[in-house]
Amino acid sequence: MSEKTTFDPFDPTGMIKTMRDKGMEAWAKAMTEAVNTDAYSEATGQMLDTWLKTSGPFREMMQKLVAQSMAEANLPSREDITRLAERFTNLEMRLDDLDAKFDECLTLLRAGGSSKKKQKSS
């Protein structure tokens, strides 16, 4: 009983706990409702778009700079690695196609083998 009424100055979440006890549920509900409004959707959409639009040129500049430095240092760029990875994936697809054909052959061989056995036994 006494523990509950004693203020504990060393509880790091004491303040937050008290706040929650008093109105966190209402706060959560209000926030959930707020983020579900048209105004919020419009504002976040607009903010995100503006940020992407304005930061775009800087990002492009950085990318060009990095690509240039990599080329000068005779190192492959991100695009080079990406192209290589794409080729690997295509190769993997070919291998998977071969694997499929191999599985088909095995199935046919097994079917053929079992029918031969049947013929022999008859």
């Binding site: 959707s41 419009e42 976040t44 959409g45 607009q46 995100l48 990002r59």
Partner: peptide, 21 residues
Amino acid sequence: AGGFVKWATDPKFNADRIVDT
């Protein structure tokens, strides 16, 4: 209905720009 639908369908939400970036 809630969920992402309200944000994602807002005309200001530009998925193309996100992906292009």
